[in-house]
């Protein structure tokens, strides 16, 4: 589903990733871990083409995205659900509208929208906050809203950047269960996290990054 071949990325001459090679298979649930600044977010951003590599080839869902023309980028991004580390909720829209937006962008019919959005909000425990604006939500609630937006349209690939950074252990476990469910239904899931609890005992692959390089691959 996702393949990196010798991918490097620098920001203003400062190395963020160097020579990264890995592949996440279709239907896999893969963890990426590593210290703060190791390059986890950079790696995920490369996948949804928020940034472009200096070197190497990135293949997503069978398409080489390096040379991809600008007009194909929206299509690529619509096949991916992203839990942004910095949330990116639209402050002028309610939680319901923020989540519905992901469906609208994908051209969902207005009628099909409501049940699916409400169902997803229920999954993350935010049904009662549907009509609230993001600013009035706690950090953890906002994070769950972002998760709802990422999964509502059932993408083929889900990228979660520190999805439990603001959540207590119980809520984190709940969110992890949702990710596993989605993964069980066929979605490839890549989770970047410091949170050991998420991956220990899962039996899934864990890719450890250190200073922009893959340090080692483990199994949780």
């Amino acid at each position: 589903m996702v393949r990196f071949e010798n991918v490097s990325k620098t920001y203003d001459g400062q190395q963020a990733l160097s020579g990264v090679d890995f592949e996440a298979g279709r239907g896999e649930l893969l963890f990426i871990t590593g210290a703060s600044g190791a390059g986890k977010s950079t790696l995920l951003k490369l996948i949804y083409r928020a940034i472009r590599p200096d070197e190497g080839t990135i293949t997503v869902n069978g398409a080489a995205i390096n040379g991809m023309g600008a007009r194909h980028v929206p299509g690529l991004r619509r096949s991916i659900g992203v839990v942004f580390q910095d949330f990116r909720l639209l402050s002028g829209k309610t939680i319901y509208e923020n989540v519905a937006l992901a469906m609208r962008i994908r051209g969902a019919a207005e009628r099909a929208l409501k049940p699916q959005v409400m169902e997803t909000l229920k999954m993350v425990g935010l049904r009662h906050k549907a009509d609230c604006f993001p600013d009035t939500l706690s950090g953890g609630e906002q994070q769950r809203a972002v998760i709802a937006r990422a999964i509502v349209a059932e993408p083929v690939l889900l990228l979660a950047d520190e999805p439990t950074g603001n959540l207590d252990p119980d809520t984190s476990a709940g969110i992890m269960r949702i990710f596993k469910d989605i993964n069980a239904r066929g979605t490839t899931v890549i989770i970047a996290t410091h949170n050991r609890d998420l991956y220990t005992g899962t039996g899934r692959r864990i890719m450890r990054l250190a200073s922009g390089k893959i340090e080692r691959l483990d199994v949780g």
């Binding site: 949804y48 928020a50 929206p74 299509g75 690529l76 991004r77 619509r78 096949s79 991916i80 992203v82 942004f84 990116r88 639209l90 002028g92 937006l101 992901a102 962008i105 994908r106 937006r149």
Partner: peptide
């Protein structure tokens, strides 16, 4: 910011 987010979410 909103425009950027829309773009990242795959809006045309």
């Amino acid at each position: 910011d909103e425009v950027e987010t829309l773009g990242l979410l795959g809006a045309t």
